[in-house]
Design a protein around this nucleic acid. Structure first.
Length: 141
DNA sequence: CCACCTTTGAAGGGC
DNA sequence: GCCCTTCAAAGGTGG
């Protein structure tokens, strides 16, 4: 547990208890080690993932809410697919009091700040455009 | 085996 | 600067 001194947007100096335990993606190595495989057995996945870990976007309030409610809702309602559960949790979210929602917003905000501290200058653009995700909107046509 | 489906939020990218 | 597109998770199912 390391206390990281950070300046809050409010100008408040706060010490963030950064737990070393929940291992976030490792910092990018200053020098890319040349992977010289004596036997070219490894497929591209391992090498690319090892050299450049896809640093994921900071999750929003919902992702935090989802990760808490999803297993419970899935167990209670016996839902199979994640999509159905996510939709159900989404409805629960709308039923939440703004104070309860605000709690997740603050956690999400803290996580974003933590992400920024861990990866200064990192842009979400790293993973941008990787998935196709069509969300085909029929209204366009 | 990976993309889809889904949610809202957050953020980038385009205009 | 504003609006739209894309990712973030995540699990079974389909292509």
């Amino acid at each position: 547990m390391v206390l990281v001194s950070v300046i809050d947007p409010s100008g408040q100096l706060s010490y963030w208890p950064v737990a070393v335990e929940p291992a976030p993606p490792p910092p990018p190595p200053p020098t890319a080690a040349p992977p010289l495989p004596t036997t070219s057995r490894k497929r591209k996945h391992e090498d690319e993932a090892a050299s450049q870990p896809h640093i994921k976007k900071p999750r929003n309030a919902f992702m935090l809410f989802l990760n808490e409610q999803r297993p419970k809702v899935a167990a209670e309602k016996g839902m199979k697919g994640s999509a159905a559960v996510n939709a159900a949790v989404g409805q629960m979210w709308n039923s939440l009091s703004k104070e309860e929602q605000a709690r997740y917003y603050e956690e999400a905000e803290a996580e974003r700040l933590l992400h920024t501290m861990l990866y200064p200058g990192w842009s979400t653009a790293a993973n941008y455009g990787k998935k196709r995700k069509r969300t085909e909107r029929t209204d366009a046509m």
